[in-house]
Each structure stands twice: as C-alpha cells, then as structure tokens.
C-alpha cells in the first residue's frame, strides 16, 4: 500500500478533527470528498508530513516515519499542493518550479528537462518566463500543480486543485490526473463530485473526522436514491451516504 492510515487521530486544542480514521490507498487516482470541516485538509496535511498526528499509525510509501531519514526519503517522492499557497511574486514560473525541484533534491542534470515537462503538462510552457505575480489565479494554481509534479512523485496530494480553473482547464486537468495515476498514488481533495466521477478510480468520503465511505464512484452513485438531494447520481449518492452516517 502506498498510503496506510490506521486509527488516525488529530486534535487542534480540544477539538478532534480526525477521529480514528482508517484509509488505504494504492496506485491510481483517488478522490477525497466531504463537507466543509470534515477533516479533508487536515488529513492531507498529515499525509504531506506537515502536521503530526496525535494518535494512530501512518505508513507512507511502505514505511512508517520514525525518524529524519525516513521522513526525508518519503518527502523526496512526495508532491503536495495545499488549498492555498504562497509564491514568490518576482520569480518567473520556470524559476518557481525549478526552485521546488531543487528543494526536492532532484539531480541537477535532470532539473531543466523536468521543469519544462511539468510546465508542459499543466499548459504553462508558453508562460514559463512570465513572473508569477502577472499570472491569473487559475494559472497560479496550475504553476502550483507543476511544482507538485516536477519530481514525478510516487505520492501526489492535491487539495482543491481545480479551484479557480475554467471548464476547459478542468477537462485538461482531469486528463492529466488520469495520466499521473498510472504510476503514482494521487489523492485529490475536492468539493466537485463531478471531477471525482470522471477522473477518479476510487473515492473516499470523510465526515466528522471519520471515513464513512470507500469505493468506486459507481458504488457511491449507486448508494443514492431518487429521494436524495442532488442533480446527478453521484451527488445523490454523496448526500445519501452522509445522511446515513449522521443517522
């Protein structure tokens, strides 16, 4: 398993954000759904090694992170795009992605090619020499995706990656996700259930800090009925699972 999480607990003060969550993910594209405050971003931060868990076990890329050596080994093979991210306004897009390639300790000889490839995959190669501050919000988001994939990560964590992308860019991004999911474990946190339906092989639904559903998008769609709220089968499945979990 690329990601194996058992009984994961995270607290912020007295508030329990993740409450004994279990999750197992392997190669492929996985959707992470849940309402606001369900714990999706916290889970992403734990898997990205930003936030330490308060309890439970986390194994990433086959190893438990028990020390600095394991942590650095995992981080070399990790790609992470937070929900919002800061960037260096005076950097060009190429410099921004290149800087993260350096930080990810990629071999120097590979970096120029890897940067161009990442920019091409997100459709920003023609804007590579523009400054980050001159880009639109959607383009900055795509530059963020480029820094996440520049090292060809084995574990890619994308928190709301399609926020700010126009419909055409979202279609292109779904295609990129499918491409990335061939070799890597890709976890995409999103509110857009149609993205999950189209691009993800499996979907996990989190509510109240617990995993309440894990299966294929078709299984999630099948969980809903005509009486459930939603404009599509998968939306009806989503609301039905949440209703059942809260009952």
């Amino acid at each position: 398993m690329t990601v194996a999480v058992e009984e994961l607990t995270v607290r912020y003060g007295r508030r329990v954000v993740l409450n004994g969550l279990d999750l197992a993910l392997d190669t492929g594209v996985h959707g992470l759904l849940g309402p606001n405050g369900a714990g999706k971003t916290t889970l992403m931060r734990v898997l990205a090694t930003v936030a330490p868990p308060n309890g439970g076990g986390v194994r990433l890329l086959g190893s438990a992170i028990t020390g600095e050596k394991e942590l650095r080994a995992v981080r070399r093979q990790l790609g992470y795009l937070p929900q919002t991210f800061g960037f260096y306004p005076r950097f060009t897009v190429r410099e921004f992605v290149e800087y993260f390639a350096w930080l990810k300790e990629m071999p120097a000889a590979r970096i120029p090619v890897a940067v161009d490839r990442a920019l091409e995959r997100v459709g920003l190669l023609d804007r590579a020499d523009d400054r980050m501050k001159t880009l639109s919000g959607g383009m900055q988001r795509r530059a963020g995706i480029a820094q996440a994939i520049v090292n060809d990560p084995r574990l890619l964590l994308l928190d709301e990656p399609t926020a700010g992308l126009d419909p055409e860019q979202r279609v292109a991004f779904r295609s990129l996700l499918r491409e990335l999911g061939v070799d890597a474990c890709v976890l995409v946190s999103t509110h857009l259930v149609e993205d999950v339906a189209v691009a993800c092989e499996r979907v996990s639904l989190v509510d109240g800090g617990r995993l309440v559903f894990s299966g294929t998008p078709a299984q999630l769609a099948a969980a809903g009925g005509d009486g459930d709220a939603g404009d599509s089968a998968i939306e009806r499945g989503y609301t039905a699972v949440l209703r059942a979990a809260r009952a």
Binding site: R45, A48, T49, V50, L71, R72, A73, R75, R76, L78, Y80, P82, F85, G86, F87, Y88, P89, F100, L103, K104, E105, Q147
Partner: peptide
Amino acid sequence: AGADESLERVTPVR
C-alpha cells in the same frame, strides 16, 4: 521565512 512555509517544509531539505 519563505512565501509558503508549509509548501517548503514538505521538501527533504535539512
């Protein structure tokens, strides 16, 4: 600090 500390800290740099 960098422009985004959490983004930088998930890299393997010491």
